[in-house]
Nucleic acid binder design. Structure first.
Lengths: 177, 177
DNA sequence: TATATTGGTCAACATGGCTGACGTAAAACC
DNA sequence: GGTTTTACGTCAGCCATGTTGACCAATATA
């Protein structure tokens, strides 16, 4: 064991480790979305609907163009999905107060119920994984995933967090005392 | 700050943390696959081709049914992809030595070149993320992703690892001295 | 008033999932 | 040796979701 060429071994381990990461991403993403997919299929919806519902629920009153920025799809694709969601009563839109061209998107009660069902399903999976792996692991997990992001995405998430902090400060100042 | 209701706060943080995970998975998977997608688009291929190429490269001589087990798609879907890959000279198949019904799949030189180009691209992204996040983070990352898997998937990966160790022991026993 | 922005719509197309039905060769079993 | 099962392929068609391109309406803004 002592006379193994160290450089070759290191490279080999490195590639194995990288491949391990690549494969884990593939399998974990598939399994992580699979459970929700089957619920969505019952309602004749797909992953695209889920994404829209999720981010509208997360950002009530979001504009169409902001949602487009998050999802990185064309407005034609989104439009098709949103029309369906509005027709089926999961989403409603209200004209913007200051800019009346905007259509601010909100979940209906039904939409909220579905979103919460889907999110709690995925949340349970995460909660179990977090519990098994431990607190330090969670931190590492988040840091590595963060490192996988494009810089544009990082900016965009930071921007969203900014908006969210602003909203929280507005609607729930009592929490901060 | 001291008189915040502890339970409400804890639940709030918990939900935020879970949502953070859900969102990171979405964005990270998207960005992580996006780069490869654009290379694939140049060759008129999609993600499905990539997955096939990746796992054939990873398991040379894999049977169609084993590949189906890994990918979790129908044989019709896979067949369409494989036909294309063979027609374009990325993949060849050889009849199985013991069971001649099997068609064992291999990458051609061209296939290997493409696989390696795609994997090194994704590998670089992972390497950068790992480097930024540190060794402990990598461990946490892998443990959490592992925890997100279905138990079937875990078994399946273990099985593959088993095969791989067997192969390594066969073809490169010199490494282990 | 002219231009830019926000959002929607129609048409057409590609990818990649799916089901169902059917075929063929080889292996395995009785 | 005949039957059944397995491994794989193929044809046909459907659906969801992405794309491009063109065009339109309402509203904001310089």
């Amino acid at each position: 064991m002592a006379d193994v060429k160290p450089i070759g071994k290191a490279l080999f381990l490195r590639e194995e480790e990288l491949r391990r990461g690549i494969e884990l991403m593939f399998f974990a993403y598939r399994d992580f979305t699979g459970e929700a997919d089957s619920i969505l299929a019952e309602q004749n919806m797909g992953r695209a609907h889920h994404r829209a519902i999720y981010f509208i629920g997360r950002n009530p009153g979001i504009t169409v163009s902001d949602l487009l920025t998050i999802l990185c799809i064309t407005k034609q694709s989104l439009s098709r999905v949103l029309s369906g969601l509005m027709q089926d009563g999961y989403v409603i839109q209200k004209p913007g107060a200051t800019d009346r061209r905007q259509r601010l998107l909100y979940l209906t009660e039904t939409g909220i119920a579905l979103e919460s069902r889907l999110t709690s399903l995925q949340g349970r999976r995460f909660a179990a994984a977090y519990r098994e792996a431990g607190v330090d692991a969670v931190d590492g997990f988040q840091r590595v995933l963060q490192g996988l992001l494009d810089s544009d995405t990082i900016d965009q998430i930071a921007q969203q967090d900014q908006n969210k902090r602003y909203l929280i400060a507005m609607i729930a100042p009592v929490e901060s005392k």
